[in-house]
Design a protein around this nucleic acid. Structure first.
Length: 330
DNA sequence: CACTTGACCTGTCCGC
DNA sequence: TGCGGACAGGTCAAGT
């Protein structure tokens, strides 16, 4: 599911690939997936690719914008005219983070998940002069594209009330204020609320909560400012790391060139129920918080009623597995 | 308002 | 092999 690092990865790809080329044709295979008149795109060019939270925007040279939300299964995949075929984009030189992994496992993480296009999830195709194409694919049809004047973009309700960008240096004061409004909310629900902080989804919420040793169900009011700040810092760090790895491919996320992301190979808790916690060795569990599947270490992330945690478990000497950075083979 | 739950949608997985 | 049902989760609408 595309969250901030995934959408940003797509944005960077689109910026390189689709800016400046005149649009020659548009095919809408699923009318509900695009709001606005597709024919009005013909002859126009994209001039800029931006992102806010999980929302993607492609500004046009006529003052309008093609706004996109990928939701769960949306993809924006570019194919050049003579670069047809699954591996056309070629491998990305993604390396493991510092401390790194020995082995990637064959065929990963540079593999494309995309075969020939269009496929049965293709909803909209934008064709550029010269034959290159941008495919908007969306298996579940939750995602959308919308054509509107740039001046109206900020009026989209989601964007109008969106919280601060967690990767911005100055995000903390605004994030703190918005978090504090949610008193009884489980901290995870607040993190997932885009009007509190932008761009965090289920994967990075779980990862950040683990990193800062906060139980996802802890009411916000029970978390100290110090801990909240630590949590926000952890969320930013985790998303920066993911960005450097091309994002997370849980189901079908791919970047603008069809390549999957490698972050999940380094995830500490997400989709790792039953595996040992990298810090303490206790098996990771999966529970339900705020209606979402939630992964945590029951030992590291105890619920501390006063929000003031001891500094982890002081007693336990670090298990050797704490250094385990090797991605499992999936 | 704060907070929770269900709906939207479809591919995948599991048990029978 | 096929089938029913649970499940996945970002956002919105409607509920308490």
């Amino acid at each position: 599911m595309p969250e901030l690092p995934e959408v940003e990865t797509v944005r960077r790809g689109l910026e390189r690939l689709v800016i400046g080329s005149p649009i020659a044709a548009v095919a809408v295979l699923a009318p509900a997936s695009l709001r606005g008149d597709p024919a009005s795109l013909i002859g126009r060019r994209f001039v800029r690719a931006w992102r806010r939270g999980k929302v993607l925007g492609l500004d046009l040279d006529d003052g309008r914008c093609l706004v996109a939300h990928l939701k769960m299964t949306g993809q924006m995949v570019f194919r050049g005219p003579r670069a047809a075929g699954p591996r056309a984009a070629g491998p990305r030189a993604v390396g493991p983070p510092a401390g790194g992994a020995e082995a990637w496992g064959a065929g990963h993480p540079n593999d494309s998940l995309i075969g020939s296009l269009p496929d049965n999830s293709t909803r909209v195709i934008v064709e550029f002069a010269g034959g290159a194409r941008l495919y908007f694919n969306d298996q579940r049809k939750f995602g959308w594209l919308a054509l509107m004047p740039q001046s109206q973009v900020t009026a989209i309700p989601l964007l109008a009330k969106m919280g601060p960008e967690p990767l911005d240096a100055g995000a903390w004061p605004a994030a703190r204020e918005r978090l504090r409004r949610r008193r009884r909310s489980p901290i995870k629900a607040a993190l997932l609320d885009q009007s509190v902080v932008a761009g965090i989804g289920n994967i990075y919420a779980d990862e950040a909560l683990w990193a800062s040793r906060v139980h996802p169900a802890t009411p916000v009011a029970s978390v100290t400012d110090r801990k909240l700040k630590e949590l926000l810092t952890a969320a930013a760090a985790v998303m920066e790391l993911s960005l450097s790895l091309g994002g997370s491919t849980d189901r079908n996320y791919v970047d603008a060139e069809g390549r999957r992301g490698a972050y999940l190979d380094f995830a500490k808790v997400f989709r790792r129920q039953g595996q040992p916690c990298p810090r303490c060795g206790q098996p990771i569990i999966k529970i339900r918080v705020a209606g979402r599947g939630t992964h945590l270490c029951p030992r590291c992330q105890r619920w501390r009623p006063n929000g003031i945690g001891g500094k982890g478990d002081k007693g336990g000497r670090r298990d050797k597995s704490a250094r385990l950075e090797t991605p499992p083979r999936r």
